[in-house]
């Protein structure tokens, strides 16, 4: 009962912030819609490019033509949800460095979540619109498959956010990791949007651990082809794991922050 209550309260909290974020972005109405449209158009352009490419140069080893659409749709939706609802996560490193975390510590809410939902990138909605549109257009899924798709996009979003939080939280220990976080996030997105088939064994290992692109796009792809409870459990298991790791690293760092002994920071 308590868990459900907390869950509902958390959702209301995230909802309130998302509404505020969208309102703030809509203050510049034209800019808001232009950004969404551009992102959707940009994604579509790239996808079109790759779709034609894979038509011209089909790979072997079980890579089907529409697979590129699936991994793009899943990755873009996951990224869109992450940046739309938890869009402030990349700024965590800067907040740690300039003491901006203090304001959140004075609030009666769970700090990490509060930081993440405090801002949103309007282009994220463009990603989501594109992703869902492409998925529906190319794959004509039934309701069950669409529900599965949404579920996997949500788990992907949690993975993206946790990934960013982990790297940004290293700022508690190593100094400004903002640039690093940007680079690695770009890397994660890149690896998520190309067929796993082209990578060697060692790299694939990397893609299921440190750079979890495998769990963002590859596993969902397999699940949509051929559903398996085991695989779904693996996906949820990994997502839960990385979320806990993110929370853990953040809390260790927060403890350090609260001691005031942060690198270069004086009371």
């Amino acid at each position: 009962m308590l868990i459900i209550n907390t869950f509902v309260r958390t959702l209301r909290f995230i909802g309130a912030y998302t509404v505020a974020n969208v309102q703030a972005a809509m203050e510049y109405r034209i800019s808001f819609w232009v950004q969404i449209f551009t992102m959707a158009a940009n994604d579509s352009l790239w996808l079109f490019f790759w779709w034609t490419y894979f038509h011209q140069f089909p790979l072997v080893h079980g890579w089907q033509n529409n697979d590129i659409v699936v991994i793009w749709a899943v990755t873009a939706c996951a990224f869109g949800i992450a940046m739309g609802f938890f869009g402030n996560s990349p700024k965590l490193a800067a907040l740690i460095m300039n003491g901006g975390l203090d304001a959140y510590l004075g609030m009666p809410r769970y700090v990490l979540l509060h930081v993440c939902v405090s801002a949103s990138d309007p282009t994220a909605w463009g990603d989501i619109i594109f992703a869902v549109g492409a998925f529906l257009l190319f794959l004509h899924p039934d309701l069950l498959h669409f529900a599965l798709y949404v579920l996997m996009a949500l788990s992907g979003a949690l993975i993206f956010t946790s990934f960013v939080v982990i790297i940004c939280s290293l700022a508690f220990f190593l100094g400004n990791t903002e640039g690093l976080a940007q680079q690695l996030l770009g890397t994660l997105i890149t690896f998520s949007t190309y067929p796993m088939n082209i990578f060697s064994g060692t790299v694939r290992l990397l893609l299921f651990t440190v750079i979890p692109a495998g769990f963002i796009s590859f596993v969902p792809l397999q699940l949509l082809h051929q559903f398996s409870w085991l695989l779904l459990a693996a996906l949820f298991g990994f997502t839960t794991l990385i979320v806990f790791v993110a929370m853990g690293v953040f809390h260790l760092g927060l403890r350090r922050y609260e001691s005031g002994n942060l690198l270069g920071m004086q009371g």
Partner: peptide, 13 residues
């Protein structure tokens, strides 16, 4: 870092 990753990915591709 991103540059390296990108070149690598495309080489594979």
């Amino acid at each position: 870092i991103f540059l390296v990753v990108f070149v690598y990915v495309f080489l594979q591709l």
